[in-house]
Nucleic acid binder design. Structure first.
Lengths: 345, 345
DNA sequence: CTGTTAGCGCCTTCAG
DNA sequence: CTGAAGGCGCTAACAG
């Protein structure tokens, strides 16, 4: 704990920071008047306001929102629970959220579950203890306890990214099953027949699992089955995609198309092709997911699906701020996705 | 505001959530006893503890940390102020911080300044209003008001990434001037002589500016001056790097080396070379900054500087938790950097 | 081992 | 336009 500011006359709380009472005393008014001036509430005489502001400036008074929130039951914190730090999807979503929250004076409290539902439960519990104005959580798959806590929480709850299951209040995202399905249809329509899959452990990423399911359905409807897959059971991205594709091709040299669970890995796969003389598209079709900038800036742009991550964050945050009340029935906003043709499939 | 939980006997606060008093009543003990059980403080009879826990479980009671913090003056929030969402540097740093904070029960409140010092001032002020246990801010360049607020803040203050100026409490990072200087020396020692520079507006990114200064000094000590530079005045990354390098080479076709302000842009530059038949290294040396995974996974790995972003976040968080008191004299921890040889310079 | 008392710093409500 | 009283939900400091 630090020494209190250097001002002999100060009374201030034992905590070493000035309080409303200090400002009030210096301005010769009551606490509540200072409070009103600071919050711009209620009619205040211009002279009083000036005296108060002068006192505030002189002391360098900073309000204590903890006390304010306790007294008024309204915080400006928004709990944000994300799945992973591994790729820029995370940054894009948080960036979208932040771009809407910050101008409105709200602050995100961030937690990352690393795709662990039990960890998510812990994080949600400790966030709710801060009485956030609202919560934004990734995905729609939670433990029963998490679901119950969110259900009972005060403010609104947005479940983002995935709308394959029903949200409990607001869902913003798109169907990963449909995205996977359309990936398969697209590639089949282009004439590819011998499919491989490269991804992370699907048990740990429900969205990737949904895309996989959709893809499998799309393939089987066309009478095609997946030839083989290579799956990493540890977090990885570009380097992993490169290596896994190499492994997969070593086992199954006759594949004509490989679907990756995300762009990071697909870019790695593309690098493998470039390094080993395989011509993307003609020699082997590569298809990613997310439409990250890196994949689109490549000399051979990646074929992939654009997922509008920033938009998802923005829309979720905007809706939550717009309507502080929960709707009677859950609302689902489909932000859609689109196939990016690219040059690798 | 939602309806209170469905339990006729509840007394609970007007806010619709159960309080310590509700639990206490149900367990037939006093509030403070419940509080002690929940925090694991003080000796508690096993029987009482069980009764309390049963009541907690029955009601689904969730503690209110706002009240707890106000009463005890100790929050578990850590303010984290970062500069930008544009690349994964952000995610790496926050990931490092989170990996240390989460197990210790702390929660990051995140703000992003977008390299705007005035915005930083606002963010710092509203974070301090939450009485965070500590603050972690990017860089050492702040407005006087920001500096004063941080100086007066209760907990510790870590200034991360850049140690080119003295921190006010704890600095964790490395010298960007030195990194820029070493970049120049390295390239000069490899025989390059006609230098170009591609980057973002340096006025908006103090760290990039420091690297640039260091590079210029390194060049001038070798009797070399920068031939030309291309600078974007808007946020961009891979695509921007690609385009800016094209522009630069159109003006100055005889360059033999180009330094980029970061890897994202350098990768874009490399893509330009690949697409237009310029051989990296022999035809044109490319040098980045950060050693992002993408640059290292390329068939032609990027020559760059490794910046240990995750480590910086981890170390800053760990130090802050370890020693809650500010030291008499500021402490600087140099996490260093290293030149990654790569294949482009 | 448990309870009582007295706030934490601010805001709501009701009086002037 | 301003103020006094009371309380938000929890915990520190003492008692027993």
């Amino acid at each position: 704990m630090r020494a209190p500011p250097d001002d002999r006359r100060r009374a201030a709380g034992r905590r070493g920071a000035y309080t409303l009472a200090d400002v009030a005393e210096r301005a010769g008014v009551s606490e509540i008047t200072v409070s009103r001036v600071l919050r711009g509430k209620g009619p205040i005489a211009e002279k009083t306001r000036e005296r108060v502001m002068a006192a505030v400036a002189h002391l360098g008074y900073m309000p204590n929102r903890i006390a304010g929130t306790l007294a008024s039951a309204g915080s400006n914190l928004i709990g944000v629970v994300l799945s992973s730090f591994t790729n820029n999807v995370f940054a894009d979503v948080l960036g979208g959220i932040h771009s809407v929250l910050a101008p409105a004076g709200y602050q995100p409290v961030v937690g990352v579950t690393d795709y662990d539902e039990v960890e998510e439960e812990r994080i949600v519990a400790s966030m709710l203890a801060w009485q956030p104005a609202a919560m934004i959580v990734s995905g729609v798959d939670h433990t029963p306890a998490t679901r119950l806590m969110l259900q009972r929480a005060r403010g609104r709850v947005a479940e983002i990214m995935d709308i394959d299951s029903a949200p409990l209040d607001l869902g913003v995202g798109f169907s990963h099953r449909a995205a996977g399905y359309d990936t398969a249809r697209h590639l089949v329509s282009r004439g590819y027949r011998r499919f491989g899959y490269v991804g992370l452990d699907r048990a740990r990423d429900p969205r990737a699992a949904h895309r996989y399911e959709g893809m499998m359905r799309g393939l089987s409807e066309a009478g095609i089955s997946l030839v083989s897959e290579a799956v990493a059971d540890f977090p990885t991205s570009t380097q992993g995609g490169r290596k896994l594709l190499a492994d997969l091709l070593a086992r199954e040299p006759t594949l004509d198309a490989v679907v990756f669970s995300n762009d990071d890995m697909a870019v790695g796969g593309l690098f493998h092709c470039l390094a080993s003389g395989i011509r993307p598209r003609e020699g082997l079709a590569l298809f990613g997911f997310n439409a990250l900038e890196i994949g689109q800036a490549l000399p051979i742009p990646l074929s992939t699906i654009r997922s509008r991550r920033g938009t998802i964050g923005q829309v979720a945050a905007a809706r939550i701020l717009e309507t502080p009340q929960r709707p009677i029935d859950p609302v689902v906003i489909d932000t859609g996705y689109e196939i990016v043709e690219g040059a690798t499939a």
